[in-house]
């Protein structure tokens, strides 16, 4: 699989990463090389094989549906680049 600039631009948008136009061709080559490398998985016969979703053969635990934490607004907001009156803020999103 070889990726072109348009595809890379689209993936970068899906991942919300700004990639300068000048870097697209180099990135497309690198990503294509990695995809080429992983495509050898196509040789493996996986008919009837279950996909692995958990490496340790254990079921997820249940717990009581009860509040175990909370009331830490100051700590939650402590690292926010721009917290105002108990809220996280973002740039204006309504035109």
């Amino acid at each position: 699989m070889s990726l072109d600039n348009t595809t890379v631009r689209n993936i970068a948008f899906l991942a919300r990463i700004d990639v300068p136009e000048a870097e697209l061709p180099g990135l497309a080559d690198e990503l294509s090389a990695i995809l080429g490398f992983v495509e050898q998985l196509g040789e493996v016969d996986t008919k009837g094989v279950e996909p692995m979703t958990s490496v340790t053969e254990m079921a997820l635990r249940w717990r009581e549906d009860a509040i175990t934490d909370g009331g830490q607004q100051d700590k939650v907001l402590a690292n926010a680049p721009d917290a105002v009156e108990g809220y996280f803020t973002v740039p204006k999103v309504v035109e």
């Binding site: 990463i17 995809l35 992983v38 493996v44 996909p51």
Partner: peptide, 30 residues
């Protein structure tokens, strides 16, 4: 990091999930 996030985004994107991610999870079982 950018490279890996983009590869991962591609492998999970609509139309490629089965070919890449699901396939890899099956080989992981093997």
């Amino acid at each position: 990091v950018r490279r890996r996030v983009l590869i991962g985004t591609y492998a999970l994107s609509a139309g490629y999930y089965d070919a890449y991610y699901l396939k890899a999870q099956k080989v992981r079982t093997l």
